[in-house]
Simulated assay, not measured.
Amino acid sequence: MTTAAQVIKTRLPNPPPPADVLLQHVRNAVEELKAKDVVEIDVRGKTSVTDHLVIASGTSTRHVKSIADEVVKHAKKLDCMPLGVEGEREAEWVLVDLGDVVVHVMLPRVREFYALERLWTVGDQPPEEEDALIAGRE
Rank of each mutant, 00 (worst) to 15 (best):
A4C: 02
R89E: 14
E92R: 12
A56H: 04
R111A: 01
K34W: 01
H52V: 12
L22M: 15
A35D: 01
D97N: 09
G99M: 01
D51E: 14
V110A: 00
L119M: 09
A91D: 02
R11D: 03
V105C: 04
K9Q: 15
N14V: 13
P82V: 12
D97G: 10
V64W: 04
A91P: 09
A35S: 02
E32A: 12
F113L: 02
A135S: 11
G84Q: 02
G136H: 12
R118G: 15
E128V: 13
V110S: 00
N14Y: 02
P13R: 04
K76W: 01
P82C: 06
P17Y: 11
E32V: 00
V102P: 03
P82F: 00
E88D: 10
K34R: 11
H25K: 13
L22H: 03
H63R: 02
E90H: 13
S48M: 09
E112Q: 14
V110I: 04
D100L: 05
W93R: 04
D131K: 15
V39A: 12
V21C: 01
V21S: 05
E31P: 01
R111G: 03
V39H: 06
H104F: 03
F113P: 00
G58D: 00
V110W: 00
E130K: 07
E40R: 13
M81D: 12
V105W: 00
D97C: 11
K65D: 08
V85T: 11
L78N: 03
H74T: 04
H52R: 14
K76H: 10
R137V: 14
T50P: 10
V30C: 10
D42V: 04
K46I: 09
L98R: 08
A5W: 12
N28A: 07
H52T: 10
A68R: 08
K76S: 06
H25P: 01
P108I: 07
P18M: 08
V21P: 05
L95T: 05
E112M: 05
E31H: 07
Q6A: 12
T121Y: 09
L12S: 11
R111K: 11
I8S: 11
I8A: 06
H25W: 07
H63F: 02
V72R: 09
N14K: 14
G58K: 00
D79K: 15
G58H: 00
V38Y: 05
R62L: 07
V39F: 06
P17K: 06
Q125G: 05
V39G: 05
H52F: 15
V38N: 04
D20V: 03
R109E: 15
V64S: 06
E128P: 04
A115L: 03
V43N: 10
V72S: 08
E92F: 01
P17T: 04
V122A: 13
